Amino acid sequence: MLLVLLVAVVGVAVGSFLNVVVHRVPRGESIVAPPSACPGCGHAIRPRDNVPVLSWILLRGRCRDCGARISGRYPLVEAGTGLLFVAVLLVVGVSWALPAYLYLAAIAVALALIDLEVHRLPDAIVLPSYPVALVLLGAASALGGDGSAFVRALVGAAALFALYFVLWFVRPGGMGLGDVKLAGVLGLYLGWWGWDALAVGGFLAFVVGGLVSLPLLLSGRAGRRTAIPFGPSMLVAALAALVVAAPLSSWYLSLVGLSATA
């Protein structure tokens, strides 16, 4: 229970930082300087007013100095990241791989929000995720004595990157190059988790994307030429695959008369 609470607190703190990332990275601004300030009056936010979730509640969603409204998205991102971190802990468990998948959860929140807002997956987040994932997953494999998992991760990254690159090359307007770059990162994590996760996560992204797009098309809120961000669907599918891949694979194998250990 203490570990769950600790991970939740860390997640909320990371969520506070992600709010800065989501706001500044698309604008090409530094995420470390200057300190956060009210967009209304420009006054630097005091440390006591910068406590995740709690400060927003105590200030009733208003700037202490000018009374300007503070978006409710900030505490939602903070609390949501905390809950997501706890969910990852429950799925991955206390293992050497936990830091790697917590990192995946953090960038998933940032990239999904940015893609929804500006229809872009910034290289400043995606590209550094390759070496970070390689180091964290490589360490998890070495410390856990499972070198085959790291080999699967490399194969998964190459396979998913290649698939998305072909789709982008055949139909450039169907997805962005940022989706291709993100696919390689997700392939690392899905491949490390298992072949079933790689297959389910890769397929599920298109299912989630279709479920998101169809209501928008039917309601007239989007047309056939409307650009609908695909990054969030990829990220949701990858995280969901960690949970559903094994039971789905077992169900499918039993359906065709095979066993998971065959």
Rank of each mutant, 00 (worst) to 15 (best):
M1L: 13
L6Y: 14
A8V: 12
V9C: 13
V10R: 04
V12S: 08
S16C: 07
A33F: 13
A33S: 12
A37Y: 08
A37N: 01
P39E: 02
G42Q: 04
D49Q: 02
V53W: 04
W56M: 00
W56Y: 04
W56H: 01
I57V: 14
L58V: 15
R60G: 10
R62S: 04
C63T: 01
R64D: 09
G67Q: 07
S71I: 06
V77K: 02
A79H: 04
G80K: 08
L90E: 14
W96N: 08
L98H: 08
L102G: 03
A105H: 10
A105Y: 04
I114Y: 09
D115S: 06
L116F: 11
R120T: 14
L121I: 15
I125A: 09
S129K: 06
S129N: 10
Y130K: 02
V132A: 12
A133H: 07
L136I: 04
A140Y: 08
A142N: 02
D146Y: 01
A149V: 03
L154F: 06
A157M: 11
A158H: 06
W168F: 15
V170Q: 00
V170H: 01
R171W: 09
M175L: 15
M175P: 13
G176K: 12
V180C: 12
L182A: 14
A183D: 07
G184L: 10
V185Q: 05
L186A: 04
L188R: 01
L188P: 06
G191I: 08
W195V: 13
V200A: 00
G201L: 02
V208Y: 06
L216K: 05
L217H: 10
L218T: 00
A222C: 07
R224G: 00
R224D: 00
G231D: 07
P232C: 04
P232L: 06
S233V: 11
M234V: 05
A238P: 00
V243P: 02
A246K: 14
A246C: 04
Y252K: 03
Y252L: 11
L253F: 14
L255A: 15
G257A: 13
S259Y: 04
T261L: 14
